[in-house]
Design a protein around this nucleic acid. Sequence first.
DNA 1: ATGGTAGGTGTCCTA
Length: 262
Amino acid sequence: MSFTLATWNINSVRLREGLVARLLQDEAPDVLCLQECKSPVDKIPMEAFRALGYSHIVARGQKGYNGVAILSRLPIVEAGAQDFASLGHARHVAARLENGVTIHNVYVPAGGDIPDRNENEKFGQKLDFLTEMRDFFRWDRPDRAILVGDLNIAPREDDVWNHKALLKIVSHTPVEVEHLGAAQASGGWVDVTRQDIPVGPLYSWWSYRSPDWNTADKGRRLDHIWATPDISNAAHGSRILRELRGWEQPSDHVPVFASFDL
DNA sequence: ATGGTAGGTGTCCTA
């Protein structure tokens, strides 16, 4: 059975309901994980998604900020959520599908502008969030699992438009990359996107502040798909849908896709 | 070195 999933930071699921519907119709992934829904759960336009065949939905939400959702065409048999770093934010939701695959959908804190936890509380919260992710997967090592989301870190030199210029910019600092690596290692997670596309620049986000995002191309790969080693060798067909950044009233992130032959 | 844009609990907060 081939299984396709996608992850997309949608930056308001209500404002961009139409874009989500268009992606579901055009690409028909089995599962779509959304971040930054910026909506209470009861105001997510679930009926529109159900009408397109995504009748199994789990979400965590709050007014205005954060928010994560998993839309699935396959039945969900169990759901849960963690509050990493005890922020009281809707930044994680998990679902186990009928096919035995567990999906973790994560929205890691952006971390503010100053990469120093003594000067910037939000940066410390980002590092703490990653440390608690590390500990969570260390004690309960996952199998047949996929972790996706806006991890708000571009770990590799070719995950950013200019490695040297971004070394002190939040999202690409060595301390963040180290924390992300520790969380990845503790679960044994394989970076599926880079397994499929091992070399060359790869971005999933372009700032709204760059008017000419396409030609300037100052992107970063902040959105990731990881899988546990027991299923990572079944992964293939990774794609980043860059062209969606050019849609009308776009999110600043584009969807990342991967397929698994399970 | 600076400031640029976008969305929502909107004239401030977060990204």
